[in-house]
Design a protein around this nucleic acid. Structure first.
Lengths: 135, 135
DNA sequence: GCAACTGTATTATCCTTATAATACAGTTGC
DNA sequence: GCAACTGTATTATAAGGATAATACAGTTGC
């Protein structure tokens, strides 16, 4: 059983600490990270990812500010979510992605049907080598 | 009749010079920028966008390296495209966006039908205030 | 008690991006 | 000829992101 926190891939465009925040929000949106779940320590996570502990700290600090991570000094950090907050995170992330995608496709003069066809064509190919998804 | 080059919006995440390259590729993909078309001078474009001329220069240099912009000293820069190159640019841009979108949606455990429903819901809302798109 | 962990903090260094301020060489229009 | 444009280049400065190297205070397990 692989941990949630292994095998994370970073792109070299966006700041790592922001990609980390999106990673956690995605896991919350997917229902894979729940209220009360403990997240890795800054040092352990940094070692696992091959990055600097202060970069993880920066991400965790941002998540504390956004209200879904609580840190009690000297004993680790934990996800703090009620159903409303979890739904809000999923909704914001999802809507933001969909809006950006639609905007980009329309900027390229793609019509609705072509976009749906493209997604239909490539949806299943993306599943290879991943954990199963309801379909 | 508004010019192609007015009203460009930059985000504060990605480097401006890269956003500029994507902007030109998007116009090419949309068929709004054709072989032989002249692009604005570095200084004029920078003044229009409120950015530094050297940032435009950096974008144009990258486009020259990618082979779809030609610059003859002291007389401006022009789009250089054959049909193959134009198709390649559109295909790469489009496929890259679709792949990234599908990956993100699947990471959130979204199923195929929900994604299609979301796009169907928001597709037309994005069209407000934009030039018409075939639908 | 002590080693090993926890979060937190500071300092210095490096790279990339972006800007400002120039400067130079060539073309064009009047 | 000369002003106004073209692309190109250099230097200096600033900010953000990331790293390395420490350091300090508190908790936990043996």
């Amino acid at each position: 059983m692989k941990s949630l926190f292994t095998g994370i891939q970073f792109n070299d465009q966006d700041p790592i600490y922001l990609q980390l925040v999106v990673f956690f929000k995605t896991k919350i949106a997917a229902g894979l990270l729940l209220n009360g779940d403990e997240v890795p320590s800054r040092r352990a996570f940094a070692a696992l990812l091959g990055i600097n502990p202060m970069t993880v700290q920066k991400a965790y600090r941002l998540m504390e500010d956004e209200g879904f991570l609580a840190t009690s000094a000297n004993s680790g950090s934990f996800i703090t979510l009620d159903d409303v907050k979890a739904a809000q995170i999923k909704s914001e992330l999802c809507k933001g992605q969909v809006d950006a995608f639609i905007r980009t496709m329309q900027a390229m003069q793609m019509d609705f049907k072509s976009v749906i066809d493209l997604i239909s064509t490539f949806w299943d190919q993306q599943l290879e080598g991943k954990t199963n998804v309801t379909k």
